[in-house]
């Protein structure tokens, strides 16, 4: 494989942007796992963010780097990727995240990243040939599947709990969930860390492959990349997790200790399965699916379908929009990198 020459500052800058992207991911989404444990008073906000950040990081030892591999070598042909492409991908994803944040659309930063990567690569190649459909197709299909799996598992867990505790009032049942929700939040934070940190690992890996520092063999990936990416997302969660009021848990339907545990555990199982299968999925969409499932089990009218509809818009738009913006940044990046 032919390697391109990348100046050290370009390489350092791009890794820094990638880690910033990872940090923002934790900053935005870290609160999803802890909103209910804070709302029910199981942990103080400070303890809860530290708890979520810790489990984000522990995911490092739990999951193999399969998601990173899908992003790094399974989405587009790595031989066509250069630092301009990576720059375009990261900037496209960041720009789309800012746009959707401004308009309040619950977009997925993971889909934005994948869309950006594909958009910038296609712009460089001038065609669709560099797309590896086996990996990219899987990611596209799971944009739809992952929230549905979250919905099914979240809803089924709620049904199971309702039958197990059918002769207790919700208040009595919630006592059992004081520790249950800690377990669910820990599992969710593991899933979040595992799937999301690996997307950045994949991007940095791709960058290192193009610079000739690493190969497509996972053993050549420097461990500092893995540690840095997991640390970045955990740090983001630690600093951003306090924005609890802004989380999906209160926007879509009201959650208590019981339904919150079911939603978190439903999200965690779905994320865990995706991570084990090496599929990069949106953690936000997966937990949203689980929350909607739990809400539907309790009362269909408890679900604010308008928020859920915004999510569907985000499904359709994110990949192409981030791709187009990434293509523009790829073009601009050639001028100064």
């Amino acid at each position: 494989m032919q390697h391109i020459t990348i100046s050290l500052w370009s390489l350092g800058l791009l890794i820094a942007v990638a880690l910033a992207f990872d940090f923002m991911n934790g900053f935005h989404d870290g609160a999803n796992s802890i909103s209910t444990i804070v709302a029910t008073g199981a942990l103080t906000p400070k303890q809860a963010v530290a708890f979520a950040a810790l489990f984000n990081f522990i995911a490092l030892w739990v999951f193999q780097l399969k998601v990173a591999a899908t992003i790094g070598k399974g989405t587009v042909d790595p031989t066509l990727v250069d630092h301009y492409v990576i720059f375009g991908a990261l900037m496209g994803a960041l720009a789309w995240n800012i746009i959707t944040w401004y308009y309040g659309i619950p977009s997925s930063s993971s889909h934005a990243l994948v869309g950006g990567l594909v958009g910038a690569t296609v712009a460089k190649a001038g065609g669709l040939t560099p797309i590896l459909w086996g990996g990219f197709g899987k990611i596209l299909i799971f944009i739809i599947i992952s929230p549905l799996v979250g919905f099914l598992i979240g809803g089924m867990l709620m049904v199971l709990v309702a039958w197990l505790f059918r002769n207790q009032s919700p208040h009595q049942a919630s006592r059992w969930f004081n520790s249950g929700q800690l377990f669910a939040a820990a599992a969710y934070s593991l899933g979040h860390g595992g799937n999301d940190a690996q997307k950045t690992i994949g991007i940095v890996w791709l960058l290192l492959i193009t610079a000739g520092v690493s190969t497509t063999d996972v053993s050549t990936l420097p461990m500092w990349v893995v540690y840095a990416c997991y640390a970045a997302i955990a740090w983001g969660t630690y600093l951003g997790g306090w924005r609890i009021v802004k989380t999906m848990g209160t926007k879509i339907t009201r959650l208590n200790a019981v339904s919150g545990s079911c939603a978190s555990l439903g999200g965690a199982i779905s994320l865990g399965l995706a991570t084990l299968g090496g599929i990069p999925v949106s953690t936000t969409h997966t937990i949203t699916g689980a929350i909607v499932g739990v809400g539907t089990a309790q009362d269909v009218r408890a679900v604010r379908w308008a928020v859920t509809f915004n999510l569907v818009i985000a499904w359709v738009l994110t990949v192409p929009a981030a791709g187009v913006i990434a293509a523009v940044f790829w073009y601009l990046g050639r001028g100064f990198l």
């Binding site: 809803g155 089924m156 709620m158 049904v159 309702a162 039958w163 059918r166 499932g293 539907t296 089990a297 309790q298 009362d299 269909v300």
Partner: peptide, 10 residues
């Protein structure tokens, strides 16, 4: 859909 599977308590 899940509401049909919940205990109904008639």
């Amino acid at each position: 859909m899940f509401s049909y599977l919940m205990p109904h308590r008639k």
